[in-house]
Design a protein around this nucleic acid. Structure first.
Length: 451
RNA sequence: GGGUCCGUAGCUCAGCAAGGUAGAGCGUCAGCCUCUUAAGCUGAGGGUCGAGGGUUCGAAUCCCUCCGGACCCGCCA
C-alpha cells in the first residue's frame, strides 16, 4: 500500500461552495449550543446615511448566501435586513445639496427626503435604493427599520440590561479596544428634545426606577468636525424609542432580541464586533452569532471605495452594463478575499457566468467532481438557487460591445442581431439576447462619451 | 499600538475552504478566417507559486518565522 492516497474521497457538502461549508458549520454550532434549529437567522446592517454602494450590497448578499446554504442543508433560514436609519447624518453625501448640512447630527429617519418627496425620509430613500438592488439580485429578506424597532420597544429588555450594567459595559469596551469614553458615558444616545439631534447628546446618568437617562446636548466631534450642541439639559425614557444604543452595544442587543445566529462583517467594524460579542455573552447572556470577517471592496487602484474620493460604485451602475447574476458572481465567488468593484469588472464577470452556465448544463465537462460541484453550485448561488431551465445564448462581452460601437445609429439592435446570426452565434437560439444588447449599447454609449 | 488581506506566466489574476501531475484572460509570436473595426479560430512560447523552516508518502494549498505591498481599527457609525 505504499504510495497510495490516504485521504478519503471528500464528501461534497451542499452545493460544494464556501457557503455550504459555512452553513454546515453554523448548524453544527447551533446544535452544540442546544438552540432551536427551527429558524436560523442571519443579519445584515444596511447603512442609511449615504448612497448604498457595492460594499453595502455585498454585506447583505453574503449574509443571504449563508442563509441559502442553511436551506440547502434542509433547515429554515431568514435574512434580517436591518436598516440603520436611527443613525445620525454625519456627512452630506456627495451629489446632494450643501444645505443639507443643517441636518447634520439628526437621525436620518427624521430628515426629509432630499431627492423629491418620494420617501418619508432621507433614511427611507437611501434604504430603498439598497432594497431595490437586493430585489433585483433576487435576495429575499425580512426588513427591519432601526427607528421602528426602537419605537416598538423590540430592544427594551436589552436596553434595560445594558443600562443597569453600564459600568461593566464600559469596562469591557476599555478592555477590548482601550476606549475609556464609556467608563463615564452611558452607551445610549438620546435624541435631543430641544434641537432634535442625536449625535450631540451626552448621556451621563441612569435612573433605574424610572428607566430614564439624564443628558445634556453638549456637542460632539463627528468626522473631524465639531457639531455644536444646543446646551439643552433633559431626561428621556430609554424604553420610549427616543434615542438609540451606541454601536458598541447595539449589535449585541439586536442579536439577542432578533435571535440572530450568523452575521458576516467587513473588517472595518472588526473591533466593534469583538466588543459586541463580549457584551452579548457577558451582559445579555446570549451566545453571539457565528461570524466571518471579509475584506472591503477596493477600487482598481486598491483604494477603499469612499464617497468623498468620488469612486463610488453603486449596484445601479452595474445593472446598466451587466446582469444581476453577474454582480452576484462578483460578490459570491470569493468570500473573504479582497476584491475590486468597478465597471471594469463587468465584462469578465459576464463571460465567467457564461462559463459557469456551461458547466451547470453539462456543456463543458469538468473531470474533478469537487471542482464541478463547486462551479455548478456557484452558478446556482448566482441565481439564488433558482437557475433557469435553459441556458442563455453566449456571446463574448467584448464582441457585443464591439458590435455595439460600430452599429449604425438608429438600427443598432437589428445590426447586432444580424451580425451575430452571420457569425453563427444564434444557431442555438437567442435566449437573453435582448438584455445583452442593452448592456452592450449602454457600455459603448458610455465609452464613446468618455472618449 | 492592535488586526486583516495580498505576493503564482510579461500584465491582471484564478486555484488554497476539503493537500494529489501549476491554470485562465490579456499581451507576445506563428498561421487561418473575415465587409475596413479593440472581432473570431488554431497553435506556440512563457512560472525555483515572495524567502526560509515544519507537518506529510506527497504542500501553491495546512502550521511557524521573516521580507515586500496594501488595507482596517485606535473619532463616529
Amino acid at each position: 500500500m505504499s504510495g497510495v492516497r490516504h485521504n478519503l474521497p471528500p464528501e461534497i457538502i451542499g452545493r460544494g461552495t464556501w457557503y455550504d461549508k459555512a452553513a454546515k458549520e453554523l448548524i453544527e454550532r447551533e446544535r452544540r449550543l442546544g438552540r432551536s434549529l427551527d429558524l436560523i437567522r442571519t443579519e445584515s446592517g444596511l447603512g442609511a446615511s449615504g448612497f448604498p454602494h457595492i460594499g453595502s450590497l455585498g454585506d447583505a448578499l453574503r449574509n443571504y448566501a449563508v442563509a441559502m446554504g442553511v436551506q440547502v442543508q434542509g433547515y429554515n433560514s431568514e435574512l434580517i435586513a436591518f436598516s440603520d436609519d436611527k443613525d445620525g447624518l454625519r456627512k452630506v453625501p456627495a451629489g446632494l445639496p450643501k444645505d443639507l448640512e443643517r441636518w447634520l447630527g439628526y437621525p436620518v429617519s427624521d430628515i426629509p427626503d432630499p431627492m423629491g418627496d418620494c420617501h418619508e425620509s432621507f433614511g427611507a430613500h437611501m434604504t430603498s435604493l439598497l432594497l431595490d438592488a437586493l430585489d433585483t439580485c433576487g435576495a429575499e429578506y425580512t426588513f427591519k427599520s432601526g427607528a421602528k424597532v426602537y419605537e416598538e420597544g423590540v430592544l427594551n429588555d436589552e436596553i434595560l440590561a445594558l443600562m443597569e450594567n453600564a459600568e461593566r459595559v464600559g469596562e469591557i469596551i476599555k478592555e477590548e479596544i482601550g476606549q475609556e469614553k464609556y467608563l463615564e458615558a452611558l452607551p445610549y444616545f438620546p435624541v435631543c428634545e430641544s434641537c432634535g439631534r442625536i449625535y450631540t447628546t451626552h448621556a451621563y446618568k441612569y435612573l433605574p426606577e424610572e428607566h430614564k437617562v439624564l443628558y445634556r446636548c453638549a456637542g460632539m466631534e463627528v468626522k473631524g468636525r465639531w457639531l455644536e450642541g444646543c446646551g439643552y439639559e433633559g431626561e428621556v425614557d430609554v424604553l420610549a424609542g427616543k434615542g438609540k444604543l451606541s454601536w458598541k452595544v447595539e449589535f449585541a442587543a439586536r442579536w439577542r432580541a432578533l435571535d440572530i445566529r450568523f452575521e458576516a462583517y467587513g473588517k472595518d467594524i472588526a473591533d466593534s464586533v469583538r466588543v459586541n460579542d463580549r457584551i452579548c455573552r457577558e451582559i445579555l447572556g446570549y451566545e453571539p452569532p457565528m461570524h466571518v470577517q471579509y475584506e472591503m471592496f477596493l477600487d482598481r487602484g486598491g483604494k477603499k471605495i469612499s464617497k468623498s474620493a468620488g469612486n463610488v460604485f453603486t449596484p445601479q451602475v452595474w445593472f446598466r452594463y451587466g446582469s444581476p447574476q453577474s454582480l452576484n458572481l462578483l460578490i459570491f465567488k470569493r468570500f473573504v478575499g479582497a476584491k475590486s468593484g468597478s465597471v471594469e469588472d463587468i465584462p469578465p464577470h459576464m463571460d465567467e457566468l457564461d462559463d459557469l452556465e456551461d458547466v451547470y448544463f453539462g456543456r463543458v465537462k469538468v473531470k474533478d467532481p469537487k471542482e464541478r460541484a463547486k462551479l455548478s453550485g456557484l452558478y446556482e448561488y448566482c441565481w439564488m438557487l433558482k437557475p433557469p431551465e435553459e441556458p442563455s445564448v453566449h456571446i463574448p462581452y467584448n464582441l457585443m460591445t464591439n458590435l455595439a460601437m460600430v452599429a449604425p445609429k438608429g438600427a443598432e439592435a437589428r445590426f447586432i442581431r444580424e451580425k451575430l446570426r452571420d457569425y453563427g452565434y444564434l444557431d442555438q437560439g437567442d435566449r437573453g439576447l435582448e438584455d445583452r444588447i442593452r448592456y452592450a449599447l449602454n457600455w459603448s454609449g458610455t465609452s464613446v462619451r468618455l472618449a
